[in-house]
């Protein structure tokens, strides 16, 4: 059967790769690309929560990630509308 370590280490790899991608990935000068890259790390963190059986934390985290993405996208769009140099 599938070993639970698979989920944990997939989560670890995704979290680290996602954070590296957010930090120095291609095209991260654009804040939109950077904000979307955080999603990869978020999936990794979700898998780690899943391994630990943190159900309520996982559900709340998924909701919080969605709201954080919405807040960030709103900030990016509003700042671009104002004409700030990003």
């Amino acid at each position: 059967m599938l070993n639970i370590y698979i989920w944990f280490y997939t989560g670890v790899v995704l979290a680290i790769l996602g954070s590296i991608g957010t930090a120095i990935g291609p095209g991260v000068k654009d804040p939109l690309v950077r904000a979307l890259n955080t999603e990869i790390a978020a999936v990794g963190v979700s898998l780690i929560f899943l391994t630990y059986n943190h159900t309520i934390a996982l559900v709340t985290y998924i909701a919080a990630t969605t709201i954080i993405t919405m807040i960030l996208l709103r900030a990016i769009v509003r700042l671009e509308e104002v004409g700030a140099e990003l």
């Binding site: 979290a15 957010t22 804040p31 790390a41 985290y61 900030a75």
Partner: peptide, 19 residues
Amino acid sequence: LNALILTDIVGMGMLILVA
């Protein structure tokens, strides 16, 4: 703004530590 997006990543590190 980019620094703000990166604080999200620092928060994820904190969450993994707590988990």
